[in-house]
Structure formats: structure tokens, C-alpha cells
Design a protein around this nucleic acid. Structure first.
Lengths: 168, 168
DNA sequence: CTGAACTTTCAAAAGTATTTGAAAGTATGC
DNA sequence: GCATACTTTCAAATACTTTTGAAAGTTCAG
């Protein structure tokens, strides 16, 4: 397989994976492209490689920066902005985990806590079934929250210990 | 908070959670509804509770059954079919993990394995960057695959040990 | 075999999300 | 200050997904 072909296939695979995960396809494709490129790319480069418009590029690059997956790189002597993606996939994973936890898990835990306070006679089987369900889901959510936090921290400590070694 | 209100809020929260996860909103809502109901519901019941059409109900219930999250229940003497959801959230989680692994992770691992065989001189930095990326992502994917398999198995063994206890 | 009770299908309609590109905005060097 | 190079915005257009409901299909008791 030729590099060009392989690149295209990787970008498209990563793109549909993103789509299934509720991440917009273009955003995932830009991320894929930046991950496999040795040097940072400009907005123009991205537009050309993926055949997308300026606005679309701008919007999705900004969102990737929000997620902490891409950063702006300034090349000395150049007016243009360049972008490059985190290439350590483990770090990518923990960044995504952190962001999804914040956006999705944290709000649902808040809601579940509220829902536990439903009034009503526990002898009513509808009330009982509801309370039981919420209770279990809540327990599960807290458990998941802890697991994800541990995962996120594992990355942080890896990061600091690597950093430490560099300066030792 | 009243039960009716709490129910509505739970269904709507679970629904938008599903939407963020690439699962269609109605499917997640039906699942939420069935989880908190003490008894199985008929298609008509679901239509009435969620204000959705017959076709929509049918399609999404079928999909939930595909995922193994809902089952058909026949009530003796009744012509209608009833549906009930798995209420053990831990089992729900492993079912979802199994299904997503099959649908998403397995195909991407297959693709990654192919992409590693890209031709080209490793001295070309584009080729090198590509190979390195794919290699790392592949390693990560295999690691993730193992972790998920362990998680899925944890449920199975929990299931069998519970079953065993029942018959001891 | 027939008709009632129920389930499934599917094409059209409604609803959402994404993309475009031209126009407005901003920073930079002269 | 002003022209240039670049970035950002946003309303309209397009593409994609979901929902509807009437019609077709199935099942089963009598």
C-alpha cells in the first residue's frame, strides 16, 4: 500500500469512528491528519488536504484546541498560524476522557443525585422501582467517575514523572 | 419532586445522554422508560408514554433487542407482546461494551493492522511519522481491546457465580 | 378459511447537524 | 495610517438522521 492511499484510509477511518462517538466527522479527520503529519500544518494546508472550506476548518480546529488535542504553533518569521496535534495516543485518550467526563458524566451525576429525592410511598411499586433504578444507576455512575478519575490521574503522573526525568 | 416529574426528567436526561453517545434519542428514552417501570410495557404503552409513533417504537425496540438490552416478554393469555429492560446497570454496561467493541473497536483494529504495511523508505519523514503514529495507535487499540474484554468477562463470571449460588 | 388483533415496513416529511463562502474583523509591517 | 495577510463569523444551503402513519404483512382463534 502506498503512503497516500494509507493516509487517506486512516483519515477516513478515524473520521467515521469519531462520528460514531458523537464527535463531528471533520473534527476527527483534522485530528487524524495532524496526528500523522511530521510537521505542523496551516489552515490552508488542512483545507487543501481534506477539501473543506475555510470556515469549517477554522471552527473545527478551534474545537480541537478547546479539547486540548491540538495546539497553535507559531513558526518564527511566518505570519500564518500552524497547528499540530498531540501524537502520544495515551495522552490523547486521557484528554478525551477528561473532556467527556466533564461534559457528560458530571452533569448526569448531578441529575441523578436530585432524582433520588423523589417523594412517595415506597410501598407503591412504581415509586419503589424508580427509586431502586436511580439508586443503582447512581452507584454505578459514581464508580465510573472514580475509575475515570484514576485513569486521568495516571496520565498526569506519567507526565510529571517524565518531566522530572528530563530535568534530573 | 413528584414521581411523574422525576420519571420525565430521567427519561429526557438518559435520552440526551444517548444522543451524545451516537445512540438515537428515542432508543435511549425507550430504554430509560423500561428500566424504571416495574412491569413490562406493550408497544402501545411506550407510544403513549413517550408520544411517539408506532413505526418509531417498533424500530427502536427492535434495535434495543439487537443490543441485548431489552427482551420480549409474553404474558400468558395475552396476544400482545410486552417488553422489559435489563435492570442491572452493571449488566447493561457490559452489554453495551460488548456491542460497541464488536461494532467499533474490532473493525478499527483490523484496519490498523493493514495500515502498518505501508510501503516506503523510513528515512522519508512522512513515511516515518505515519508508521510511528499507526504503530502507537495500534498498540493502544490492542491494550484497550484487552481491557474491554476483561471488563466484559468480569460480568460473565459475576453472572455465573451468582447463578451458581442460586443452585448451591 | 376468515377476520380481528397485532406487528412490521417504507416512502415522504420534519427535524438536526454540518458546511460553505463571502463579508467583517484583526494584526502586522512599512 | 493604510495596505496586506491572515483569521473569524454567520446566514443560507446542503446533507444527514429521525419520525410519521398509512398500508402491507403476520398470526391465530374460531
Amino acid at each position: 500500500m502506498k503512503l497516500t492511499e494509507a493516509k487517506a484510509q486512516f483519515i477516513q477511518t478515524w473520521g467515521s469512528l469519531g462520528a460514531q462517538w458523537g464527535i463531528n466527522r471533520t473534527m476527527a479527520q483534522i485530528h487524524a491528519l495532524l496526528m500523522i503529519m511530521p510537521d505542523p500544518l496551516s489552515a490552508e494546508d488542512i483545507m487543501a488536504e481534506l477539501n473543506i472550506s475555510r470556515g469549517n476548518t477554522n471552527m473545527n480546529v478551534r474545537e480541537l484546541i478547546n479539547w486540548g488535542l491540538v495546539e497553535r504553533v507559531l513558526i518564527p518569521g511566518e505570519r500564518k498560524e500552524y497547528f499540530s496535534a498531540e501524537k502520544d495516543i495515551w495522552k490523547v485518550a486521557t484528554d478525551i476522557a477528561r473532556e467527556r467526563k466533564r461534559r457528560e458524566l458530571d452533569p448526569i451525576i448531578k441529575t441523578l443525585n436530585q432524582l433520588q429525592e423523589v417523594e412517595g410511598d415506597t410501598k407503591d411499586k412504581h415509586v419503589k422501582a424508580f427509586k431502586d433504578s436511580i439508586h443503582n444507576i447512581n452507584k454505578f455512575a459514581h464508580q465510573t467517575d472514580k475509575t475515570i478519575s484514576t485513569f486521568i490521574k495516571s496520565e498526569e503522573s506519567w507526565f510529571y514523572s517524565t518531566l522530572l526525568k528530563l530535568f534530573k
